[in-house]
Design a protein around this nucleic acid. Structure first.
Lengths: 105, 105
DNA sequence: ACTATTATTCGAAAAATGTCGAATAATAGC
DNA sequence: GCTATTATTCGACATTTTTCGAATAATAGT
């Protein structure tokens, strides 16, 4: 009932997912949800639909889909169908986990 | 005179370098320099020589060397010859950079 | 100079990854 | 039910990566 198919974050898989420039760009877009310079309201995680996320990346829809699936499987990105679109977002707690991975002090 | 060939950290390259399980293990060892459970003195970055770093990883010396070179080129790991050995370490500032990459708040 | 130790470079082979187009699925609106 | 929109799955192919062993380099000690 509770766990709605959200993948949990595991570091090796996460870094592997971020190792591709396209996937890193996609993740970065979701991380920095608002326009460059501005800051998101921490409360509302920004959502992009798949098509919009790939905007400007010059990759085929099938490739885009593949990359988002990888990000999702790595536990970095959540996805949920909403009508014709599939919405994607990053849970803030995932960012915290990643951030603290590198803080050994 | 000043810049002693230390590669600067760039995120896409860094995540790519960390995408391999062996390289992640090597980096993790250097990050968490002391024995599991204990904490390093922040002042003294721990150093491993190449051979010791690869201990237990079951990879050929040539493979180990290759991976460390990649970590170095990505700006994650510093390397310096000291006698017969080559010492490796992680600059604490690199960890800070990586950590803050994920903190967009 | 010779030997032992430690690490790197250099191919080469096997495995994994990134990419696409075509076909398929899921949904919404008519 | 048909059509349009949005996204995914499924091969297939090209590229990249991982890995190794053999040869080479760098250093220290005898």
């Amino acid at each position: 009932m509770s766990n709605n198919s959200k993948e949990s974050l595991r570091f090796p898989a996460a870094f592997k997912a971020l190792s591709n420039p396209h996937r890193l760009a996609l993740f970065y877009r979701l991380m920095n949800c608002c326009e460059p310079g501005t800051k998101c309201n921490a409360a509302s995680a920004a959502r992009f639909c798949v098509g919009d996320l790939g905007e400007g990346l010059n990759i085929a829809p099938s490739t885009l889909s593949h990359h988002l699936k990888e990000l999702n499987r790595a536990g970095l990105v959540e996805m949920e169908r909403r009508g014709k679109n599939v919405e994607c977002w990053v849970e803030p707690e995932k960012l915290k986990s990643l951030s603290s991975f590198f803080q050994n002090d």
